[in-house]
Simulated scan of single mutants.
Amino acid sequence: MKRALLTLALLAAPALTGAALAQTAPATGTTGTNPASGQQRTIEAITARSDRGFSIRVPAGWTPLKNVPDTDVAFAYRTVGALRPTVTVRTQDVEPSIKATLADFRDLFAGQLVKDVPKLKMLGEKTIRVSGTPAILWTYTGDGEGGGVRWSQVFTLRNNRLYTVTLMTPNGAPADLIEAGREILNSFALTGK
């Protein structure tokens, strides 16, 4: 019964939560000419902060995407092969009466992955901490739209809000892109109480 309620709550959550507002702020200014010095400035990183209780930092070269359905923030990198690497953060409020745990979501997501990802191959699962809160890190591969894909996904639960961070890179992505992806996932922080 609990699993059925949890599934229903997650399916309804996007309609209930609406679009979250996120602010993106360059760490070192915007691209363009500095009026005071006349010198060119570049963005070294962008930190997205959301009133939904999180922040995430992406390095230069990642472009913020707007109006991505059921997503709080999204960034894309330049095309690698036939695919554009992306990182997304999604939050979902969970009805407190369900009393869902991180393990409940892990089991629900594991069952859904098998259905949603063609040629799924789970590469690893690790228990980690995000801002002191238990979290799960998954790495898996499968077929995506346009070719073979590697996903790294972090999900955690705090104060009846589920946070899911997903990094998608094409198979065979350059090592520096993989490292940048690790840094992005590691930068994810919970800022709410």
Rank of each mutant, 00 (worst) to 15 (best):
N160F: 04
V58P: 10
P96G: 02
V114M: 01
V80Y: 06
A9M: 07
P64Q: 07
G32D: 11
G38M: 06
V80R: 06
V114P: 01
G144M: 05
V117L: 01
G29C: 07
V58C: 06
T169C: 05
D51T: 13
Y77D: 05
K66Y: 07
T47D: 02
P85V: 00
L162Y: 05
R150W: 02
G144S: 13
V154A: 02
A173S: 15
A76N: 11
A25R: 14
D51C: 00
R182L: 10
A19V: 12
D72P: 08
L8C: 03
P59H: 11
Y140P: 05
T191Q: 11
S131G: 11
V114A: 11
W151A: 08
G144D: 08
I56S: 10
G132K: 09
T79V: 15
R78E: 13
S131F: 12
K99Y: 04
P26N: 03
A9I: 01
L177V: 07
Y163N: 05
L21P: 01
D93L: 12
Q39C: 07
L123M: 12
G18Y: 03
R150M: 14
R41D: 14
Y163S: 00
N160S: 10
L5T: 00
A13D: 02
T139C: 01
P69A: 09
V114F: 00
V73T: 14
P14R: 04
V114Y: 04
T101G: 08
L8E: 12
A135F: 05
R3Y: 07
T28P: 06
I178L: 15
L10M: 15
T166R: 09
D143S: 14
T47R: 11
G132L: 10
N160G: 04
E179Q: 15
Y140W: 03
A175T: 13
P59C: 10
T127L: 11
G81A: 08
G18I: 08
R57N: 10
T101V: 04
L8A: 14
G192C: 06
P85C: 07
